[in-house]
Simulated scan of single mutants.
Amino acid sequence: MASPAADDYLKTIYHHTEWQDEQITPSQLAANLSLAPSSVTEMVQKLAAQGLVSHRLYGPIALTAAGERRAAAIIRRHRLIETWLVREFDYAWDEVHDEAEVLEHALSDRLLAGIDELLGHPVVDPHGDAIPDADGHVHRPAFVLLGDAEPGHRGRVLRVSDRDPQVLRAMQDAGLHIGVEVEVGAPGVVHVDGATRPVPTGAADAVWLTA
């Protein structure tokens, strides 16, 4: 079942456990996809019949090994395209998600391989998300959510969620780019290069630091 709709389900399930361990529930999946629970139930049953997800009635949903490979392949396409748009076409990091959503279903494997070669085989996208390799493998260093980091914690900005473009723009304006070294201060502030800066609204739950 290779279709944009099925791929969106697999990507959403993959994303949910990428930076935390709790499996996604049917209601969470429906909310993330902005779909009716009945529609989600029907598609999950189809994906389960294809061996792409495992699910028991009223329980959480998990990708099977085959489902994870398929999800990783689509996410690889999406994140390579985002990186390509930022590096080669000067897109801002808050502008690339919707474009990549369209292009990930349109580019051939040959063109995608050419983009990967052109970019020097990047391992993270503009938001710090790991780009799976051709075999679906990723490497993520140990991390901590900014909102969970204790005062005094020092680390690099590892990843910023691309779910809210407004948070991305606020991070950009605050100079909190991927790779920037920060020290967590009192609630709501971080220290960067000796300067104290407020944490943008919504960033505490959308920014990950190296542990």
Score class of each variant (00 low, 15 high):
5 A>L: 12
29 L>C: 02
47 L>M: 04
83 T>H: 07
77 R>M: 01
92 A>V: 09
107 L>H: 08
204 A>N: 09
22 E>C: 00
135 D>W: 12
149 A>D: 11
150 E>S: 13
133 D>G: 07
7 D>P: 00
181 E>Y: 06
154 R>C: 10
105 H>L: 13
122 P>M: 15
187 P>T: 09
204 A>K: 13
55 H>F: 02
174 A>E: 06
157 V>S: 07
131 I>P: 02
156 R>D: 10
69 R>F: 01
18 E>R: 09
173 D>G: 01
60 P>C: 06
205 D>I: 12
150 E>Q: 15
31 A>Q: 09
63 L>D: 05
81 I>E: 07
195 A>M: 05
104 E>L: 12
22 E>F: 00
48 A>E: 14
84 W>V: 12
140 R>F: 02
147 G>Q: 10
49 A>F: 04
179 G>R: 05
53 V>A: 09
166 Q>N: 05
182 V>Q: 06
91 Y>G: 09
22 E>T: 04
188 G>Q: 08
137 H>S: 10
124 V>Y: 13
201 T>Y: 05
98 D>H: 14
205 D>C: 09
186 A>L: 08
163 R>G: 01
103 L>K: 04
122 P>C: 15
47 L>C: 01
161 S>W: 02
114 G>K: 15
82 E>S: 03
4 P>V: 03
73 A>Q: 05
8 D>M: 09
12 T>H: 00
106 A>H: 10
208 W>G: 10
147 G>L: 04
166 Q>C: 02
95 E>Y: 05
124 V>T: 15
129 D>K: 14
47 L>H: 01
68 E>Q: 11
179 G>A: 03
157 V>Y: 00
93 W>N: 14
186 A>W: 03
145 L>V: 12
77 R>F: 01
161 S>A: 07
208 W>Y: 14
78 H>T: 06
112 L>E: 13
94 D>W: 15
5 A>G: 04
35 L>A: 11
121 H>I: 10
20 Q>P: 00
155 G>V: 03
125 D>F: 10
174 A>P: 00
51 G>R: 05
118 L>Q: 14
137 H>L: 05
104 E>H: 09
94 D>I: 09
208 W>H: 15
125 D>W: 11
16 H>E: 08
52 L>T: 12
186 A>M: 04
121 H>P: 06
13 I>P: 01
187 P>A: 13
195 A>P: 00
68 E>H: 06
57 L>P: 06
37 P>K: 11
198 P>I: 10
61 I>V: 06
106 A>Q: 14
7 D>V: 01
184 V>Y: 08
152 G>L: 07
194 G>V: 11
186 A>C: 01
194 G>P: 00
38 S>N: 09
131 I>N: 08
177 H>D: 10
166 Q>S: 10
150 E>T: 12
61 I>W: 01
75 I>D: 08
117 E>A: 15
129 D>T: 14
150 E>N: 11
171 M>G: 00
112 L>M: 14
168 L>E: 01
136 G>V: 02
126 P>K: 14
208 W>V: 09
33 L>V: 00
119 L>G: 02
159 R>M: 09
6 A>K: 11
26 P>Y: 08
164 D>P: 00
152 G>N: 06
183 E>H: 04
81 I>G: 01
49 A>I: 04
47 L>K: 02
194 G>K: 13
96 V>C: 05
165 P>Q: 08
72 A>G: 03
154 R>G: 07
170 A>C: 01
108 S>T: 14
175 G>Q: 03
87 R>E: 13
206 A>L: 05
183 E>N: 06
